[in-house]
C-alpha cells in the first residue's frame, strides 16, 4: 500500500515547521496549485531577497487546505530534520561525498571558466584584426599562454544554497518518507468546522481562495487563479444559529463596497449544503 502511495503523483510531501504545514519542493508546489489551492509564500525570493512584494518558498498551507489534502489522502508528512540526522560513520561518508562533489564541481567550473575566457579572447581578436595570418598565429600563442596562466580561484566557485532539503540522499528513512505519521490536528472549534465547509464548497465550485484577514473576513474568493484575477467576494463564515452584531455587518459591508468586493455571509446548513447571503450597500438616498 505504501508503494502505491509512493508512486501516485497526486500527493505532496508536507514538512512541519513549528507546527505549521509547509511545502518546499517545487513539484509539490506546482501540483498544489494545479488543484486550485493557493497557500501563502513565506520565504525571501532568491533573486531579490530584500523586498516583500514577491515572496518565495516555502509555501504555508491554510488549515482548510491542509484538511482538504488530508481528506483526499493527498498529503504525507515528510520526516523532520531531526529524524534525518545521520550518525557516526555515515556522517563521515556523507562529508566525504560532499567534499568530492565540491571538488568535482570546482574542476568542471574551472574548465567552463577557461572556455569562457577563451571564447571572449577569440571574439576580441577576430573582430579587431584584419590580417588573418598574423592574427591566427598571435591568437594561438595567446590561447596557449592563457592555458598555462589561467587560475580559477576557489572564491569564484559558484555554490548552491539549496532551498529544499537535499534530504533523501542524507536520510535514513528515504523510503518511509510517505509514511502516515500524520500529526492529527484537532479542529473541534465550531468556527473551524464552518470555515472548512465553506472552503471546500467554494473550492468545489471552482473558486480560488486565500485568507482575508486584511479585509476583515475569512476568505477572499477569486473567480480564477489569483495571479490573473481580482477577488470578487469577501467570505465571512458564520454558524447558522449565531447572532451577528448589526454594527459588524455594516462595517464589513461598508469595507467591501470600498474595495469593490461583495461581502458573502456563509453558513453551513445541517444537510451539508452551504448557504450564501450577499451583502451590498445599496447607496439609496
Amino acid at each position: 500500500m505504501m508503494e502505491e502511495e509512493n508512486s501516485t503523483p497526486d500527493a505532496v510531501g508536507l514538512s512541519w515547521c513549528d507546527s505549521s504545514p509547509l511545502l518546499w519542493r517545487i513539484e509539490d508546489l506546482k501540483w498544489f496549485r494545479s488543484q486550485g489551492l493557493v497557500g501563502a509564500l513565506l520565504g525571501s525570493l532568491p533573486r531579490t531577497p530584500r523586498q516583500n512584494g514577491r515572496m518565495g518558498r516555502p509555501l504555508l498551507l491554510l488549515p482548510e487546505e491542509e484538511r482538504l489534502l488530508t481528506e483526499r489522502c493527498a498529503a504525507a508528512a515528510l520526516p523532520a530534520a531531526k529524524h534525518c540526522a545521520v550518525e557516526g560513520a555515515d556522517v563521515h561518508q556523507c562529508v566525504k561525498q560532499y567534499e568530492a562533489e565540491q571538488q568535482q564541481s570546482y574542476e568542471e567550473q574551472r574548465v567552463l571558466a577557461l572556455e569562457d575566457r577563451k571564447s571572449a579572447l577569440l571574439r576580441a581578436m577576430t573582430s579587431s584584426h584584419t590580417d588573418p595570418q598574423t592574427s591566427d598565429e598571435a591568437l594561438q600563442r595567446r590561447l596557449e599562454a592563457l592555458d598555462c596562466s589561467f587560475t580559477f580561484p576557489l572564491s569564484a566557485l559558484a555554490v548552491q544554497l539549496s532551498t529544499a532539503r537535499v534530504g533523501l540522499t542524507y536520510c535514513h528513512e528515504d523510503r518511509a518518507f510517505l509514511q502516515a505519521n500524520w500529526p492529527i490536528r484537532k479542529q473541534d472549534n465550531p468556527r473551524c468546522e464552518v470555515r472548512y465547509q465553506v472552503f471546500s464548497d467554494l473550492r468545489g465550485r471552482g473558486f480560488y481562495l486565500t485568507s482575508a484577514g486584511k479585509f476583515g473576513g475569512d476568505f477572499l474568493v477569486y473567480p480564477g487563479d489569483p495571479l490573473r484575477f481580482h477577488a470578487h467576494f469577501i467570505a465571512v463564515c458564520l454558524s447558522l444559529d449565531e447572532s451577528v452584531c448589526l454594527l459588524d455587518v455594516l462595517a464589513v459591508a461598508r469595507l467591501g463596497s470600498n474595495v469593490k468586493k461583495t461581502v458573502l455571509l456563509c453558513s453551513a446548513a445541517t444537510d451539508g449544503n452551504v448557504l450564501y447571503t450577499s451583502l451590498q450597500w445599496s447607496g439609496m438616498v
Binding site: 517545487i26 525570493l45 569564484a156 566557485l157 559558484a158 555554490v159 532551498t163 487563479d225
Partner: peptide, 19 residues
C-alpha cells in the same frame, strides 16, 4: 504568468564561495 511565477519560485540560490 504561471510560468513566470514558477521560474521565480523554483530558482535556487547560487552564490560565489568568496561572498
Amino acid at each position: 504568468s504561471l510560468s513566470e511565477h514558477w521560474s521565480l519560485t523554483s530558482e535556487e540560490r547560487v552564490e560565489r564561495l568568496g561572498n
